[in-house]
Design a protein around this nucleic acid. Structure first.
Lengths: 110, 110
DNA sequence: CGGCATCCATGCGGATACTG
DNA sequence: CAGTATCCGCATGGATGCCG
């Protein structure tokens, strides 16, 4: 149930409200990805923002970062067990977002 | 122009990601409120941002704005029927946000 | 390959003053 | 009462260059 004073929605918004964070999480749901994989999967993201957002998500405990001390270096990112608790939330948010986009579309052609 | 987002989560984030929007919506769930009511219920919000966020939400079809042509003027804001579809989404988001806040707390004291 | 450092542009939000 | 107008600081994010 929702509390009256402080709205924890803001907490979730804060966690997800980076320009590329939803896309990052979306791409990690299925499988572990390397840094370079994510760059290719999200073509318009800059290295800086990808790195920064990944560090944010890692700091929140949502994303696991695994470094293999090889040459060349290899770093893998994956959803943590805790991060997977976001999946059902993301699905609900996605469903509403799709409805909203559909609604906007029907408005624009009417 | 219809920009088909790959991740509709961004749509929902866009709708809710104003600094005071969750609080505004939260305060409108129970009942219709006047502008001045919302100012009192959200003490730190400025008139500018309250007005701007309300217009954003109205533009998305989430909030209804009713003007009574009286002196002094009276304007009422309420969740639209469509806006009420956000409530179950908000509850899921809230539940996760509360868990996350709790998690952060237990981490900070461990 | 997987970053970080730096500089820069934009936009969100805050403070203040004014108004129908 | 319910806004609008204006100015401004700061954070977010983009572009580029360098590095282990």
């Amino acid at each position: 149930m929702i509390h009256q004073r402080e709205c924890p929605i803001e907490t979730l918004i804060h966690v997800l409200a980076g320009k590329w964070k939803p896309m990052i999480l979306w791409n990690l749901i299925d499988s572990t990805k390397r840094f370079n994989d994510l760059e290719k999967l999200i073509p318009d993201v800059s290295q800086k923002m990808l790195s920064q957002h990944l560090r944010d998500l890692e700091g929140e405990g949502i994303v696991d970062r695994t470094v293999y001390p090889t040459v060349p270096p290899k770093v893998e990112y994956s959803l943590s067990e805790y991060g997977k608790t976001l999946i059902p939330v993301a699905e609900v948010m996605c469903a509403w977002g799709e409805q909203h986009n559909q609604r906007k579309y029907t408005e624009s052609v009417s």
